[in-house]
Design a protein around this nucleic acid. Structure first.
Lengths: 228, 228
DNA sequence: GAGTGGTCTAGACCACCAA
DNA sequence: TGGTGGTCTAGACCACTCC
């Protein structure tokens, strides 16, 4: 066995998988484990903290460390920039702006951005292509009142790339769903209305300022993969 | 400002968001920062490691620490047990087994489980309901050769609950997609074939043994939410 | 009250890798 | 080859919470 906190983590995980320590059971204290492994308590703590972060262990002061009774599977999803996702597949990426107008958004968009009725937002629609085929149809509402100065026209480059370069590291939420292609989706992809599409919806703020609200419709058959 | 590594993390993140350190810029070394903050290097390292884990910073030995040029958004998804998801909504959960037969799976299932042609697997279909309405239609292939002894009948409780209790903490992958309801889906939900459904597909192993391969079709309109 | 995990320190050595 | 992050140590104090 190699050394280090990763070796300890692997050994603890092995005992759990071997049911040496069953679900719900308490495992030895950090002090007992660092005596067993012959290392400092901080090293054991590092290993156990990592297992707790992935949901394998549950830790509470005084109560000790237990194997999770119902292992909530946590997985980290890397949300790719569309250009990178396409180029990562070895396909050529292309972007085309379809529309760019100021208008009043529908009520659901206002609610998601927590904006009062009556405000006008910048409404962008564009198409991302992979290898000449439509890949993602983007429908975005952008708050023109965001800080950071003048917004460019998005004729050449997508709003998302401008955002990650100029308004990075903000908070938001994201939702995945399935929906039948609407008229716009069908026109963008050249498919029949009602065709099932994978939909990603994202809303973004910095502090309390609503930035943008975007709906991404992926090409038919798209699959989003993760590893547990 | 409060003390501790979380305060340092917050302060570093604040400077990044304030563009004091712009995307791609190198930030001071750990040693310089721990002099500035008046703490040990390990404490600064803890803060920077956490920011690197969430994709805000990129760290390389000798090259130093830089603000990520293209901040890959990482989000942690907690994959819920269906029963808990339903009960968390305050609805009553119900489960019904629809079929339980041994048969040869179709080729895509064999490939995902990395099994040779000709083997027969246990094929389960069941329906999870929320508040009396169909919620998830489950189509599962289960390897009867898995260790752990006799498998129960799944008349009363779902295979997933048996698995998390008896074969927990294994590896696998997961994929999200959209698909039109097939004949089975349509019958289960009482909807028209072709209705867009949110699909989750999971494959699970322990070590090199294929355990199970499951396709979950969620009720029309279902949304999977995450926070960034 | 007392046991446990959470954190911090000051120092050390090592692995990596750009210069 | 030198600078940087990655890790480990031995010890300490603190925060939480079960008893």
């Amino acid at each position: 066995m190699s050394r280090g906190w990763e070796a300890i983590r692997a050994d603890v995980l092995r005992r759990i998988q071997a049911r040496e320590w069953g679900p719900g059971a308490a495992i030895p204290t950090e002090e007992a484990l660092c005596r067993e492994f012959g290392c400092a308590r901080a090293t054991v703590g590092r290993a156990l903290r990592d297992l707790a972060a992935t949901g394998v262990l549950e830790r509470r002061r005084k109560a000790g460390t237990r194997v999770a009774l119902q292992p909530v599977r946590r997985a980290t999803l890397e949300i790719p920039v569309i250009r990178q996702e396409v180029e990562g597949r070895g396909q050529t990426y292309a972007y085309r702006l379809l529309a760019d107008v100021m208008e009043q958004p529908p009520l659901p968009v206002l609610l998601r951005l927590r904006l009062p009725a009556g405000v006008a937002l910048r409404h962008l629609t564009c198409l991302h292509s992979a290898g000449g085929q439509p890949f993602v149809y983007e429908d975005r509402w952008l708050n023109p009142a965001v800080p950071g100065g003048q917004q460019p026209d998005f004729a050449a480059h997508g709003a998302n790339e401008w955002l990650v370069a100029n308004m990075p590291y903000d908070a938001g939420d994201i939702a995945f769903s399935a929906a039948g292609a609407g008229a716009d989706d069908a026109a963008a992809f050249g498919i029949d209305p009602g065709t099932p599409l994978f939909i990603v919806e994202r809303t973004t703020w910095t502090a309390d300022t609503a930035i943008t609200c975007v709906r991404l419709a992926y090409m038919p058959g798209y699959r989003l993969r993760m590893t547990l």
